[in-house]
Amino acid sequence: MASLEGSQAAGPALNDAGGGAASATDGVLRPVPYRGGGFRPVPVRFVGLFVFVALIALWEAGSRSGVISNLVLPAPSEAFEAFRYLVESGQLWRHLSASLQRLVIGWTLGMSLGVAVGLMIGLFSLARAGVLPLVSALFPIPKIALLPLFVIWFGIGEGSKVATILFGSFFPTVIATYGGVDNVDRTLVRMGQSFGLSWWSIVRKIILPGAMPAILSGCRISASIAIILLVAAEMIGAEYGVGAYILMAGSLFATDQLLAGVAILSVLGLVVSWLIGKAEAWLLGWRG
């Protein structure tokens, strides 16, 4: 370093006297080529919003100029009109509250049961041997295929709808939870034992927080599945609900309403994802 600076100050004439690395060539100093960087996306603000707005604008322009036929795809403004009607007629809240109620009840139950069963599989050999194969066998079954059975078991009312969402969010949560428990650093568990912590303390203060990152990412997946299943569940004779609204619009080929309904689901997904992000920031702040 010192010799480089020296030869720089003295100029090319004194290069030999300086004897630095630069004198090896004809004395032209040049920076080391930079080869690092990349492979590490950083957050860039407003780009997402911009892409979204641009796409909508393009679509609207396409519809107005007639490039996109109204029969194929209604313009965003028409979908928005349908949405406005929904708001003004007071139907929006009716549909939304019915859906939210099913979603919250089904997903909360599915999550809680999933975490409990996942913990058991993670902690007890017997539960792992007995329950895990069952979970692996039932997880891949599309819950939609079981709808008729759910109707028979839980009735045509709210029961079958909540059950569909419950089952849908239960399995991914189980798998995420027991995976998280398996990944908890064993030396931390050993440490707890070596200090004579009770079994329950070790589970509550070491295993559960240690598995929390995995549980929360399971949460994201199960929340998306719950929203997907909402529409399926509301196929079973629901009068109100965003899914029911979409299905009705679909059967009447009211594509503007259909799009409005789909947009509502989309926003619901965004809100849930944002809420889980908040929960992560709060519960996993220690990861920095």
Partner: peptide
Amino acid sequence: NPLTYVFQDFALLPWRSVEANVSLVLED
């Protein structure tokens, strides 16, 4: 806790502060 360990890799709970890590072994 008559026989008490000190581990090579510290075995601190990363989600607990310094005082809470000490508190952990007293809470029971």
